[in-house]
Amino acid sequence: MTTPRSPDDVSRREFLGTVAKTGGQSFLFGSLFVNTALLRLPQDVATAKAKQETEIGKGVIYGFVVDTTKCIGCGSCARACRAENNVPDGYNRTWIEQYTFYPNGEVVVNSPVGGEAGFAEPPTRNMPAELEKVQPVRGFFVPKLCNHCIDTPCIQVCPVGASFKTDEGVVLVDKERCVGCGYCVQACPFGSRYLNPDTNVADKCTWCYHRVTKGLLPACVQSCPAEARIFGNVSDPASKISHILATNRVQVLKSYLGTRPRTRYIGLDSEVI
């Protein structure tokens, strides 16, 4: 894992405003016909910059930090998410992974029912039988959810414009226009998306958009007893998440894919893929 680029600092934002926002994620036809940023004259860039700067003060940009060092693997987040969002059985908008390291270098990863039933009792472990008697050397939990990437592969590939990003940086699905082709499910490197068998459309974590726009916290964040999940407005320097981002070294998942996730992690391990 390399040190991730912070998408929210001001210099980054200038870059965002001029290139990425106008189609940094675009490819194929997009890079030929839509990405006007490449064709812009210097004064246009200056205008775009000025416009972007005026948006910093008023615009809310959400961010999410997962502090894996605090997670106790209780599964409250995954249960709350299921109840809040009516997630069908067999699918998860958020889940917890359990990593256990053995002396011989073996790493065992589990997420039984996404961690909703807890981790302590069998049958939870999907591991070689010979390891069952061995005392592990290290272990931790990693909660996962949609990364709400800045350069989202899922929005890029949606053929009909049913996946989109709000001004706050939240990636959503338009349930009325989605054709249910599943291309976004294939394109998400993190397994965050699924085709909902009840509605036959793509579905995913919304960072509880219906809650956060009403001033509430996402259900998973509210239910976390260990403060392992932090959600807030990263464009507000006084917010808790801004403080955490300013005082911690954070990482993102699969940074080499260049999707620039807005969900960032504290205490990731190289074994976490």
């Binding site: 675009s26 194929l28 036809f29 949606c158 414009g161």
Partner: peptide, 14 residues
């Protein structure tokens, strides 16, 4: 929808 509102960044939209 793939022809009504094709998303030009998608390979599939073509």
């Amino acid at each position: 929808n793939i022809m009504f509102t094709p998303n030009l960044t998608s390979a599939m939209a073509g």
